[in-house]
Design a protein around this nucleic acid. Structure first.
Lengths: 345, 345
DNA sequence: AGTAGCACTCTGGCAACCAGAGTGCTACTT
DNA sequence: AAGTAGCACTCTGGTTGCCAGAGTGCTACT
């Protein structure tokens, strides 16, 4: 796709159509353009431009006597060439910053807040995944006696994630003994990945070694899982969009949003690229995402721990504002994740 | 509501109407009843019975020339007097049991599996809350040095819940020192509620005391929160129900399901009663739940840690099967929670 | 290149119509 | 008294025809 084919005015007309349609959800006709924008030409001229834009595949009309509507290609052209980057207004930014400040200490609230903020400011459905590393590394482990032969294993990974697991041991154990074993493991395994545990097995007591096996297993599971649990919010909002009102669409959207697998696919596809991404109608390749747009950004500390966040909305979305919001929230989250890792070492 | 007004046959007719309508989603008329069931009377007689059931407020018809449909009252009568308790078929039970067996050790999977199983077996939307106690009690704490002045506090509560919190300390601390403090706190605070911490403050070192304040705060927050995070699944499925297809209904359902506040209200209302509950159309008192039925059951160890699970579906739901499924999953969950507490002491 | 004017097309709403389904009632039977 | 046959009545949902309104596309003109 290139910008060369269109005259200045045609580009303006295309921009107007997209913006009007985004706002009103109504096909926009030549008359209303001529009346509401001072293009210095009559509606007939605009009609010619519209016809040309349609021949180029950027616009279409639902039926002969309706106004024009952007095609997927039209939206892509708009996002790539015509759109102005919008920053979130500073008062909104300030308020969001305050909210993030309030949960700074509670890591388990970060994602919830991100999705909630995104959903509210963009009027779309928001999603976020927890930061993950490629290979988990051991940070700290604790064995807690629950009762009798039940022991709770609490594992802290270097990226700050906490995993728990219930163990059955052969015979009742005292918290005292369990702590000794925890200490032993913490001493030898800190900073290691599951694969590197093997180096240390020789140094461990038999029971500690058993636990180490288990920990390695847990860590491997974490790594193998294609994506961590996804937070979501704002589903109800996008169902208000008129284009989703019709029959089967609702179900498709809810399914995409609930099921995770489709989103994971996209998320994985954009796993390692840096900047913000706009996926319009699944970029034609992902059938389930037909008629939806995603705006996604990666956040975190690259090569250390990164996650993905963004929104899902109708094609007819305010891309400028949405991208501004996603970019801003991603930046805030990055700040907070960096905080865990300390100044870049 | 009582059972006395209706003759044997009228009750049978009501049961047939409910069951047919649940299956077909079509209003059921006197002819089809006479044809498909051997009641030994003609359709005219059934018409009389239907008219009577309608006068009693148990049935209604959408318009003059349509068949009958149960009213909310009709469903309630059905559930209370006419319904046969259905147990889940044994092969389904076995398979579910296997699945639960596989995640026995991973507590963080329990709720996810519960909702997933319920959603699949009942074809409705499922929800579950984590087990909670009225007053949290301290079990174990760990302080983990993250880097510089950042410390991660990991708190294990007696009911098995794990909370984490990020701390900023005045000066960098060694893991060694942090462990000493953790041990100090574990020694003095184990089994205590936040309110009871005060007894021990005198025995603690200054820094440990500061941490104890913080822990008390965290525990208080946990207790104050009206309900723990809710797991959900199967939303897409119930949107297939024809009665939800129409306009605003979808949004209302998604909102109820997503927003938590309404569900919390109900959940709290049935917080302390033992058996399974069927809430039909919000029992007339909760407007948001109009045209939906909830089937809820409490699970866990009473007076120790209990949670709630159940499903949300259309009024037109197979109550027998749904109740069987909810009861079964609640029993499994109770087993697993009991396991944490050990044999009733 | 741009414009005025006009014929053409398609939608969405409205009214009229009809077959089908199911009721409610009355008069009759057992 | 309980049940039944028969029939008039009512309401829906689909179909058809119609019309105003909106917007286009084309041709002839500046």
């Amino acid at each position: 796709m290139s910008a060369e084919n269109l005259t200045e005015r045609q580009q303006r007309v295309l921009r107007i159509v997209v913006q009007e349609y985004v706002q009103s959800a109504q096909p926009v006709g030549s008359n209303s353009i001529a009346a509401n924008y001072q293009l210095g030409v009559s509606s007939a001229t605009i009609r010619n431009d519209l016809a040309l834009l349609e021949r180029e595949g950027l616009l279409t009309h639902p039926h002969t006597s309706a106004g024009r509507v952007p095609t997927e290609l039209g939206y892509r052209y708009y996002v790539q060439f015509l759109m102005a980057d919008e920053e979130l207004p500073s008062d909104e930014r300030r308020e969001i910053r305050v909210q993030f400040g309030e949960v700074r200490q509670e890591m388990d609230q970060w994602l919830r807040l991100s999705t909630s903020v995104l959903a509210r400011t963009t009027q779309a459905a928001a999603l976020a995944t927890a930061p993950r590393t490629h290979i988990s590394r051991y940070k700290h482990l604790e064995l807690v006696a629950i009762h009798g032969c039940k022991v709770l294993l609490v594992l802290v990974l270097q990226e700050g994630a906490v995993k728990q697991r219930l163990l059955d041991v052969d015979q009742p154990m005292e918290q005292h003994d369990l702590s000794r074993i925890s200490n032993e493991l913490n001493e030898h395994l800190v900073g290691k990945s599951g694969a590197e545990f093997a180096q240390s097995y020789a140094l461990l007591s038999p029971f500690a070694k058993q636990v180490a096996f288990l920990v390695a297993d847990v860590m491997e599971r974490v790594d193998r899982r294609s994506a961590s649990q996804m937070y979501r919010d704002g589903l109800a909002q996008i169902l208000e969009a008129p284009e989703f009102a019709e029959g089967d669409n609702v179900r498709r959207i809810v399914q995409v949003f609930e099921e995770q697998t489709v989103l994971e696919q996209v998320v994985n596809e954009y796993a390692d690229s840096g900047d913000i991404h706009v996926v319009i109608s699944g970029n034609g390749r992902i059938a389930e995402l037909r008629d939806m747009s995603l705006v996604l950004a990666r956040y975190g500390v690259i090569d250390r721990a990164t996650g993905l966040l963004g929104v899902v909305g109708p094609l007819r979305m305010s891309y400028g504002r949405t991208m501004g919001a996603v970019r801003f929230v991603a930046a805030l989250m990055s700040e907070m994740v960096e905080d865990i890792y300390g100044p870049q070492s």
